[in-house]
């Protein structure tokens, strides 16, 4: 890796995060959603792994250690925002405020439970993918015991996407 790629990789991280944030939020007025935002974040992180190597990347961005936990938290958030209407006896995956009611506005962002759902999907996808990259960047040592974590994290992914996609 040349100095140039390293510099560009570092420079790209912050803008990529911002774009991802914008796409996540834009989803309710314009094209975008939690999944694509998460993929963009993961691509930026993957570039760091490629350029800097696994160890240095994780030293520089200590937040990456929490990736598996973020994935699980994300899945729980998504499940919660899908199943909470059960408490009020509404059908599953109804959203609050319901159709026809005015949601709370923060700037141009409309706050309603589907936003929460997409945040959950974002965390889930980003967390699971980063955990995967972590494990594939440092494959298990020869004859080392222990289960590959990406395999453990992956069953969660399709499950949450199922609601997200419709």
């Amino acid at each position: 890796m040349s100095v140039l790629t390293e510099a560009i990789a570092r420079l790209l991280l912050a803008p990529a995060l911002m774009v991802a944030g914008a796409i996540l939020v834009k989803g309710y007025v314009d094209v975008g959603d939690g999944f694509s935002a998460a993929v963009i974040v993961t691509l930026a992180v993957a570039l760091q792994y490629l350029v800097l190597g696994a160890r240095r990347t994780e030293e520089e961005i200590p937040l990456l250690r929490f990736a598996p936990r973020a994935a699980i938290a994300g899945l729980l958030i998504a499940l919660a925002s899908g199943f909470f209407p059960l408490l009020f006896g509404d059908p599953l995956f109804s959203h609050e405020p319901g159709p026809g009611k005015r949601p709370i506005h923060v700037g141009r962002l409309e706050l309603m439970t589907p936003v929460l759902f997409d945040v959950g999907v974002f965390l889930l996808v980003a967390g699971a993918l980063i955990a995967l990259i972590h494990h594939l960047a440092e494959p298990p040592e020869l004859e080392e015991e222990g289960h590959p974590a990406p395999a453990a994290a992956s069953p969660a992914a399709p499950a949450a996407r199922e609601e997200a996609s419709r």
Partner: peptide, 29 residues
């Protein structure tokens, strides 16, 4: 929506297969 879901499931499955292959490499070299 269906295509997106299928892609994500494909992704999860690829991750799983790669993990198994990584383990095969670790044990069998």
């Amino acid at each position: 929506a269906m295509a997106l879901t299928a892609i994500v499931i494909g992704l999860a499955v690829t991750a799983l297969l790669l993990a198994i292959v990584a383990r095969v490499r670790a044990t069998l070299r």
